[in-house]
């Protein structure tokens, strides 16, 4: 029963991504191409998502606990460190090259296009590589230099 609820929540996200244009690299890259074929649509995606989430979260947090889990599990860190900023920069470079972010690519898998599957496979390879790098101490190294 719980899994059906999670499936439906994922479906709402997948439909939203599909309608918004976030699953379309041509549209995403045009949004960032301020000096070329600029398409401001993605500003409206971000705006719509942020307004709903900003208000909805405040209503959700009025409860003492979520409906299907013992407690809210939200990140509590507030410090800014090199992995956060460096990782975000590398993510941005990749996003600017490929036009897919993870939340756009995962629903796009449902179109059955082989290019999307190749992107997601490369994304997973990157996740595993970064995890390996962190294991052998890159994380500790970057922390000690900040």
């Amino acid at each position: 029963m719980k899994l059906i609820v999670y499936y439906l929540i994922g479906l709402v996200f997948g439909v939203g991504i599909s309608i918004s244009g976030m699953a379309n690299p041509a549209k995403v890259l045009n949004f960032f191409d301020l000096a070329g074929s600029w398409d401001p649509s993605l500003m409206f995606v971000m705006g719509g998502a942020l307004i709903v989430t900003f208000i909805g979260y405040r209503l959700a947090f009025r409860r003492s606990a979520p409906l299907m889990a013992p407690r809210f599990e939200v990140p509590t860190r507030r410090d800014l460190d090199l992995p956060l900023i460096g990782g975000s920069a590398v993510f941005g470079i990749g996003w600017g090259i490929a036009g897919f972010c993870p939340g756009g690519a995962l629903p796009a898998l449902g179109t059955g296009m082989i290019e999307v599957a190749i992107f997601v496979a490369s994304l997973i390879a990157g996740l595993l590589t970064a995890r390996g790098l962190r294991r052998i101490g890159v994380n500790a190294l970057t922390k000690s230099t900040t």
Binding site: P83, S88, V90, G94, A125
Partner: peptide
Amino acid sequence: IIVGGFLVGVGVNFSS
């Protein structure tokens, strides 16, 4: 696609 996907994967792992 491959290079971009790989960089996205590395980046988002570090940036959480």
